[in-house]
């Protein structure tokens, strides 16, 4: 059996990491771990882009990864700032206690 590493291996690895990110995002209640799950998903997409860029011999994929880095940095900066200002009100990072917009 041919065991050389193909694009398939990278896509499977990327899918596994993306699935882990989803599992972490929907099962955890710690808001910081939620952020880190999103980062995990973004990284799996980056891996997919770089793998396809390698196998299609097209460097545009690598340039795209750089834009994803910029968007991820912006997301983390704003998200963590929101988290900190939210923490000042409810004194916790448990997402179940973030109910400032609900009626009751």
């Amino acid at each position: 059996m041919d065991m050389s590493v193909t694009i398939n291996h990278y896509v499977v690895l990327s899918s596994i990491l993306f699935g882990l990110g989803i599992i972490g995002f929907v099962t955890r209640r710690n808001a910081i771990i939620l952020f880190m799950s999103v980062e995990l998903m973004l990284n799996s997409v980056n891996l997919m882009l770089v793998a396809f860029s390698r196998y299609r011999a097209d460097m545009a994929g690598q340039a795209m990864v750089l834009f994803i880095y910029a968007v991820a940095a912006a997301e983390v900066a704003v998200g963590l700032a929101i988290l900190i200002s939210l923490f000042k009100h409810v004194r916790t990072v448990d997402i179940n206690s973030f109910s400032l917009l609900s009626d009751n």
Partner: peptide
Amino acid sequence: MGAMLGGVTLILLALGVRGVYCMVGEK
């Protein structure tokens, strides 16, 4: 429920990969 959703997504993605190999020839 969330873990099941994640697991199903993972399986779907891994299954969808099977079509990729014939689509992408290595350059």
